[in-house]
Each structure stands twice: as C-alpha cells, then as structure tokens.
Design a protein around this nucleic acid. Structure first.
Lengths: 121, 121
DNA sequence: TGACAAACGGCAGATATCTGCTTATAATCC
DNA sequence: GGATTATAAGCAGATATCTGCCGTTTGTCA
C-alpha cells in the first residue's frame, strides 16, 4: 500500500483511540486481544476479521515510536491460566499523532489527509 | 459411553503407547500437542480431529493414576516464545495397564476386551 | 428386552501472539 | 498518465490448553 511517512491508517487511529481511552479510564496498558475486542465493538466488527492485521499494525507502530511495549510477567499469566500478553502503552508521540490526525475532523474540514507529526523511528 | 473400571479406550492406549515409546527414546516427559502429532502420524490421522478429546483423555488418565503431570516452568516457555505446556509422565500403573491391554493381542487371542489392571484412583 | 443414565466423541470457540502466502492498493518514477 | 514497487490487508495455520454443548454409545438395572 505504500504510504507517506507521518500518515495514520484507519486501523492505527483506532488503536490509538482505544489505547488512549483505556488509559483515561485508568488502565496502565493494553494488549492486542483487548484492542481487538474494543475495536470490534465500536466499529461494529468487519474490521479485524483476521488478527494478523492488528498484530502487524502494533508492531510497526512500536517501530515508529507511537507505542512502546513489554512482555507481561510469565508467572502472572501462568497464575491466571492463560497465554502471556504483550503490554502496550501509547507514547507522547502516539498521542500527538492522534491529535494531529483528529484535528481536521474537529474543525469540520474537507476530507484532507490527516497529517500526523513526525513518525520516524 | 459408560465403561467398566479398568478398561482402556483406544485413545488411551494410543497415549500410553506414544508416551512409553517417547520415554524409551529418552524423553523425560511429553505434552498433549506432541502426543497429538505422534498419534496423528501412526494412526494416520482421522483420530483426533478435535483436540478437546485428547485433553479430556489426559485429564481422566491422570485422575485414574495412569499418568502424572506438572506445569512446565513458565519462564522456559516464555523464553522459547510459546504457550506453556503441561508435562506428563506414564506411571507404573500406566505401564501395567498398557501391558495388560496389549497381552491378548500378542498371543493372537480372539478379540476379547483387554482387561487392564486395577485403575482405581 | 427395553429404558435410563453415565460417560465419551466431535464440533466450535475462547485465550493470546505470530508468521507465511497471496492479493489489493497507494505512492513514486519516468 | 501508465508502469513499477513498496506496503498493507486478508486468509490460513502454528503453538498449547481448556471449556461448553450436543449427540451417540454403552453398561446396568428393572
């Protein structure tokens, strides 16, 4: 699909939205599966039939500096009897990129490409 | 399906066979997925389309004392980047039950019910 | 012999992440 | 403007265990 650097795809915006909202609600971090459910609920599905798309988006967003992640303590996951999670946080760059992308919408502007901040790794 | 105590089902025999052969080959233990593959290879598939059947069989064999298990160290699984395994060993009772079940076959006996040893938990 | 109940088999899906392959789409170059 | 090329999306499956539900089979009892 090849895109200009500093531009956010719809799925990436969704991830930032969900991540920031979760943070506002008090969550210190989020993981892929959780985001998948969040997105599925608000964008009433269809998006994200395959999870591979989401995980790849998370990967490149981390590489771009919009997110940062760490593995959950394996002991904790084992204690709860489930696979371990990769825990993500939205970085300052991520918040800025999202704000920039949302700005044109808020001003009711024409459907121009949302120009996010610098997203160089 | 209700069965007499002390009788082995085909899938249980397969598990014991695979588990004992793996032990002979030097493996200290085995896990469900491994057994699933082993069985799929020798009984050329068809058996074990659904894994639930296998895991339930492992559960009741442990309850019956034919197997014993422990969880793999979560750190080890995390280090290898995969879900953790439950590690099984065939007990003495398990070996006895299998020997008893195989005995009639070896003597080329008529297709009688294999009478395994006492399998009371 | 026939009815009943207990137990097993298969199907489907939850949990969580990741990779390979193919197809579609967008940016850039000429 | 059309060809090239990089990148994202979708599909499928690996990894490992477990649970709920439904249908079927089998042993037992009347």
């Amino acid at each position: 699909m090849r895109r200009k650097p500093g531009q956010l795809l719809p799925i990436e915006l969704s991830i930032l939205d969900a991540g920031i909202e979760l943070a506002v609600r008090g969550a210190r971090h989020f993981h892929g599966f959780l985001i998948a459910r969040e997105i599925k609920e608000r964008e009433d599905a269809r998006l994200l039939t395959a999870h591979g798309t989401l995980y790849r988006a998370l990967d490149r967003m981390e590489k771009a500096g919009l997110l940062e992640s760490e593995w959950e303590d394996p002991m904790l996951a084992a204690g709860e009897g489930r696979p371990r999670r990769r825990l993500y946080r939205v970085t300052a760059a991520g918040e800025a990129a999202r704000a920039a992308a949302r700005a044109p919408e808020r001003r009711g502007a024409t459907q121009r490409r949302p120009q996010a901040g610098p997203v160089t790794p």
